[in-house]
Amino acid sequence: MSAFFFLLRELLGAIRVRSAVLLSSALLSLVLFLACFAALFLVPEAPTVPSGGLGATDIIAYVAPRLSRDAVNSLFLRLQERNDVQSIRYSLPAQVTSERTGGSFVLVARSAGAVSGLTAALRSTDGITFVETSSGVSGGIALTKTTRLVLLCGLVVFALASLGLAREGFRALLHAFRHEIRLMRLSGVSERSILAAIEVTGILIGLLAGVLLIVGLALYAMSSPGAGVEPVLDPSRFVGVGTVAVVLGLLMGGLLGLLGAAHLASSRFSPIS
């Protein structure tokens, strides 16, 4: 094991309760930051209704673009056979205002009382991203202006929280490691080795946050089909979300590490007093 990996192991071994709590909180904030980022920039916008208002028994179900033609046909037939469906037609993607949906089913429920049950059934159907009734859009990650604003605020708040928590976490960690740092400086160990170990710790936190986001999204989608994350988990989008999450996590982790390394300028780590 090289001197660097020995140093990194020793530094990670110096994590105590306080630094563990703070760095874990920074990790959680970073995951939430990445989740906001993924939702803000990678989830399609909520579809807008091309025509005027919907009638009391009208329902529009937006189809995920990942579905094949056969899958759409099969879904159409299944819905047509339902007792609570009076009529159904498929609207091609070109006819839908949002470019990101794979077309839509325009349904008319048998009665106004059947609308809620039918809407719930549609929402839990795999391949349906959004369901729209006369009372509004539901069933997907509807990025309305308000949602976007909330996500943007979340992005800033979680970024600042992760930076602040990591700064305090590294302060606590380096405090526990101060005697070792003094000895290293006294012994002629390169300052770059010490900085690198702290930087790598920050990057590991960022990488872990990226991986946790990907795993979390995948688990959520698997455990709750129709929950609205399907658009993100389309194969092409999933790669995009994963790559962006990991890259952004690494960048943020690097920033966290730099904040931690900034503590080394403190006189507490001076080899002689």
Binding site: H179, R182, L186, S187, G188, V189, P271, I272, S273
Partner: peptide
């Protein structure tokens, strides 16, 4: 780098030495 190299060839006992935990 050379200063670090020199420091590695010098053994220092600091005042009020505190050992590692």
């Amino acid at each position: 780098e050379r200063a670090l190299g020199l420091r590695r060839r010098i053994g220092i006992l600091p005042q009020a030495f505190v050992p590692l935990p």
